[in-house]
Measured scan of single mutants.
Amino acid sequence: MQRVNMIMAESPGLITICLLGYLLSAECTVFLDHENANKILNRPKRYNSGKLEEFVQGNLERECMEEKCSFEEAREVFENTERTTEFWKQYVDGDQCESNPCLNGGSCKDDINSYECWCPFGFEGKNCELDVTCNIKNGRCEQFCKNSADNKVVCSCTEGYRLAENQKSCEPAVPFPCGRVSVSQTSKLTRAETVFPDVDYVNSTEAETILDNITQSTQSFNDFTRVVGGEDAKPGQFPWQVVLNGKVDAFCGGSIVNEKWIVTAAHCVETGVKITVVAGEHNIEETEHTEQKRNVIRIIPHHNYNAAINKYNHDIALLELDEPLVLNSYVTPICIADKEYTNIFLKFGSGYVSGWGRVFHKGRSALVLQYLRVPLVDRATCLRSTKFTIYNNMFCAGFHEGGRDSCQGDSGGPHVTEVEGTSFLTGIISWGEECAMKGKYGIYTKVSRYVNWIKEKTKLT
């Protein structure tokens, strides 16, 4: 034993070699072989497995989906700052455009905790909710729209109204504003409101030439003092309507412009014939205590009207009353817009006519005020429907199939267009061939041609 100890002390290297040989010859039971080890760690190889990531292109799944990435790591994937920024906006807080917040056709661009709407022409605001041009839906104005110097929408209202708090709607500024039905039992019968379409306001006024200088022999019209197929109006439903009495009662109609003036057809009036105007009328054979009678003290036909040349060209006249009318729910003026808007309103496509005229061709006159909704007829169809001249200051309205029309005794009465609950004068009943005849239409004086003249002559002093 002493000898062994001496050998170990003198030859430590020998001992180490012996131990190493023993270990190498022993069977290893701690580690699995290569094949079995792979069965336990069965993990798919990654895209760049075996390579240094710093030297390969980034992978979106590896960089940002398996674990949260930084902007720089995302930049490695896209290799483009702009594309990385677009991805980053949604990656950080989701897609803010998912709810489609942009209105009126706006395009949404996502941002971090926010979004941006790219608005089409005519709109602005956070969600493109603000109209900035009158060309689109009248700028959301209830009545009139004008573009300011910086191309912003400025709404306005006709006389007797003021802008509401929203700067879009119009509200009454006087007790009985024009064009409004205020009798409670008839307010439910107000005709369907007309909503502004998209309009090209630059070209809204037709490029028409008034044929002022045409000389033409007097034409022989049949029954051209021209509501057939209409309905009984309720008291106060058309408070701007008046009836004219002269040699015979209810020979023509008219509309209240203001307390002192009536507008009617020029062919209705004769110099030297006494005319009485009755406002607030409903049943011409009954006294309903809503009527107001006034005498006409002055007749002003349009300066281009000449019955000797043509009885229905420039067929418009103004009547001055001896005493002002007292405005109330049964006696209310009709609204008159400017030339541009009167023309736009007419193009809405349908209007209402009213009167006490004959209820059928050569038949009896109506006792109760009649009204009828009539569609506008395109000019080409209008011209083809008659052998008589249709001037540019006239328009056609009615039904091709016949059966409904204005008729004798309705002449001078109103053709009105309702705009968001307020009625505007767009025409004056003038003439036609018979009444409600198939293929024939009622012919009306186009008020847009005469609004400046009306307003100039009827100013209240």
Rank of each mutant, 00 (worst) to 15 (best):
L60E: 10
A26E: 02
L327A: 03
G432E: 09
T445L: 11
D378C: 03
H302F: 06
N310T: 07
C178R: 01
F238D: 02
N328E: 02
V273A: 12
D410C: 11
Y341N: 15
S423E: 02
A9V: 08
Q57M: 07
D410N: 09
G236N: 06
L60Q: 15
F176D: 02
Q370E: 04
L211P: 08
V195K: 08
L319I: 07
F123A: 03
V331S: 03
K274Y: 06
R140N: 15
A265T: 04
K455L: 07
E433H: 12
N203W: 07
G409A: 13
K234H: 13
C97N: 00
E10N: 15
K362H: 09
I297V: 10
Y201S: 05
E53Q: 05
R379E: 08
A265V: 03
P333A: 05
I214C: 11
I17F: 08
L369Q: 07
I297R: 10
D93V: 08
Q185L: 10
T422R: 03
F345E: 01
Q237P: 07
K457M: 15
T342Q: 03
K126Y: 10
L372D: 11
C335V: 00
A265W: 01
H361R: 13
F345I: 09
C435S: 04
G106S: 03
I210T: 13
P375H: 14
L325I: 03
C108P: 01
I15P: 04
R373I: 05
N100A: 05
T276R: 10
N113M: 09
E401F: 11
L367V: 09
V243R: 10
M394N: 13
V377C: 03
Q143V: 02
E72C: 03
V359M: 12
V331E: 00
L24I: 07
C435I: 03
C134Y: 03
N295H: 14
N222H: 05
D322T: 03
N295C: 04
P301I: 09
E98C: 05
V92D: 14
G442F: 05
C382Q: 02
R364Y: 08
F348Q: 08
M6W: 14
Q143N: 02
T276E: 12
E259S: 09
S156R: 08
L19G: 02
E98P: 03
T29E: 13
S430V: 13
C141A: 00
T81N: 13
N127A: 04
N127S: 07
F31D: 08
T271I: 09
W431G: 10
E73F: 05
I256D: 01
R449G: 13
E401R: 13
L14G: 04
C141Y: 00
T85A: 09
G439C: 05
R43S: 14
